[in-house]
């Protein structure tokens, strides 16, 4: 079933029930928010996405596809993740903090978001690996 949701950045959006992402292990500090939708902007492509709460129009996160960082960023998930997300392959995103000065944008590599595209279950998982919580996306000299 397709439902309409109000959002701050996109106005009213239509989301198919089967596309709703459900956090089975919530975002740290956002334990009351479980249902989200992934929204892309066609001009930007799929390197960045919006993670829009379906419970609060004002709550929205920017996600970054960490594939360009794969020379050093290789998240290793504990086996127990299967209990949270279900078996299968997972899509990894990292949360992006964008201040007014976008050159200071950072991503959280310590605790990425993992999505099971089959079950639509999502979790923020703190990795055992020693990655920074605030990794600068843009090099100073760029």
């Amino acid at each position: 079933m397709i439902m309409k949701y109000r959002t701050r950045d996109f106005g009213e959006i239509e989301i198919n029930d089967s596309d709703i992402l459900t956090f089975t292990q919530p975002l740290f500090g956002f334990e009351d928010y479980r249902r989200f939708a992934l929204i892309y902007n066609h001009e930007i492509g799929e390197s960045l996405a919006w993670l829009q709460s379906l419970d609060d129009p004002e709550l929205c996160f920017i996600l970054f596809d960490p594939t360009p960082l794969s020379s050093f960023f290789r998240p290793e998930l504990p086996k127990s993740v299967e209990n949270i997300l279900g078996k299968g392959d997972y899509i990894c995103w990292v949360l992006c903090a964008i201040p007014d000065d976008i050159r200071k944008a950072t991503v959280n590599l310590k605790s990425p978001i993992f999505i099971n595209p089959i079950t639509k279950k999502v979790a923020q998982i703190m990795l055992d690996q020693n990655y920074p919580i605030r990794f600068p996306l843009i090099k100073e000299d760029a």
């Binding site: 740290f28 500090g29 930007i44 976008i102 919580i133």
Partner: peptide
């Protein structure tokens, strides 16, 4: 420390977010 980073990510709303994200991309 992750809670703080998440709150920062949730409130990081430059005046025109789409514009900022486009520039970032």
């Amino acid at each position: 420390q992750n809670v703080l980073a998440n709150r920062q990510a949730a409130s990081s709303v430059p005046a025109n977010l789409l514009d900022a994200v486009t520039k970032l991309s």
